[in-house]
Write a protein that binds this DNA or RNA. Structure first.
Lengths: 188, 188
DNA sequence: CGTGCACTTGATTGAAGTCAAGCGCTGTGG
DNA sequence: CCACAGCGCTTGACTTCAATCAAGTGCACG
């Protein structure tokens, strides 16, 4: 199973005991079978999830195709990428790719806790920064690399994805078709 | 010149007078001529800029080409997208595209101010969220749209860019070549 | 044992890149 | 004040990359 000790779990570790305990008071453990939806379009996302065990993906449907936006592994935080559209509804799906165990965190309660709590506010800033850097890197890859190079980059930077996730999902994550991805793998 | 009242300036407006004043104590007004570099690779970015007047672009060089990562207009905040690479150095340029007036904000001082200051911490969170949503949208466009659709999307969502910025820069921002962009414009 | 999923492969088309030439401004220096 | 250099953009001929659509393989699992 995926390796441990990513930046996100470090951010949690760095919290004071007091705040760790506070977080626990609003977290609920839940387990889901493979291929369960944690979020479907139309429902406002009132929670985020910390994955204790398992893998999820965020995706959207676009003209009969599924486009994968994000994969999430152990100790990572899952939330809808695009938050909301103009009509206030998310168009995003979040789905488990394996049997998965998550800590469910209600956003209203988290926002209440963090009010006037600098440590939790900084915690949120760190997490946002982490995901911003990741997205900026990914954007850059789309602007500067072709399909083959993006695939090689993925192997290097996110080997977990290659190891554990079906190519169909990886293809749309890389912005290419399954067929092309297969050919790229053949050549390399 | 570009329209006013974007989300970022609203975030500033919403600050308490006390914090607005605090920010002013660490801000320095500077003006730059067109085509000046506010940041070059190799130097750690110790500041961010709030544009009072003018336009900037962030870009990188990659095999003799310049790839534009971001344009910034009046009242927006400019900072390097990719923060840093593994060697700790940014590889990003920030350049003025017109005569430009900025509020220079030293990051160390800002970090000192925001320590234990929930309002400023929330301010930072709001700004990060704003840019995250923007990046997530842009990423999605690369995954789901072809060159023509990305251009149309840009016209719709960021008309300022089309109005004020040379096509050469826009092309790399959209991840296409100048020639292709010109053809797309010809057809539409 | 057979159905369906994950992936590969082939033939063809279409989208975008490359490279080079050329046009029309603008602005600057002789 | 004109001439010309350079920038911003377009256009053409051609190539290359990736998409499309369809067929087919191997494997897992009920």
């Amino acid at each position: 199973m995926p390796e441990n000790n990513n930046p996100i779990s470090l951010f949690v570790d760095n919290l004071s005991d007091k705040n760790k305990q506070l977080l626990e008071t609003i977290a609920t453990q839940k387990t889901y079978k493979k291929n369960t939806f944690l979020l479907k379009p139309g429902r406002p996302a009132s929670s985020i999830f910390i994955i204790s065990k398992g893998i999820t993906r965020n995706f959207i449907r676009k003209s009969d195709k599924e486009i994968t936006l994000q994969f999430s592994f152990e100790n990572e935080i899952v939330f809808p990428q695009n938050s909301y559209q103009s009509d206030g509804k998310s168009d995003e799906y979040i789905q488990t790719l394996t049997d998965t165990e998550v800590e469910f965190i209600n956003l209203n309660e988290f926002n209440r806790l963090k009010n006037g709590n600098p440590e939790l506010l900084k915690f949120e800033i760190s997490i946002n920064e982490f995901y911003m850097i990741q997205m900026a890197q990914r954007l850059r890859d789309f602007q500067t690399l072709n399909a083959t190079e993006r695939y090689l980059q993925l192997i290097e930077k996110e080997p977990k994805i290659i190891k554990y996730i079906p190519l169909t999902y990886i293809a749309s994550y890389l912005g290419i078709t399954l067929g092309s991805l297969s050919r790229i793998r053949g050549i390399i």
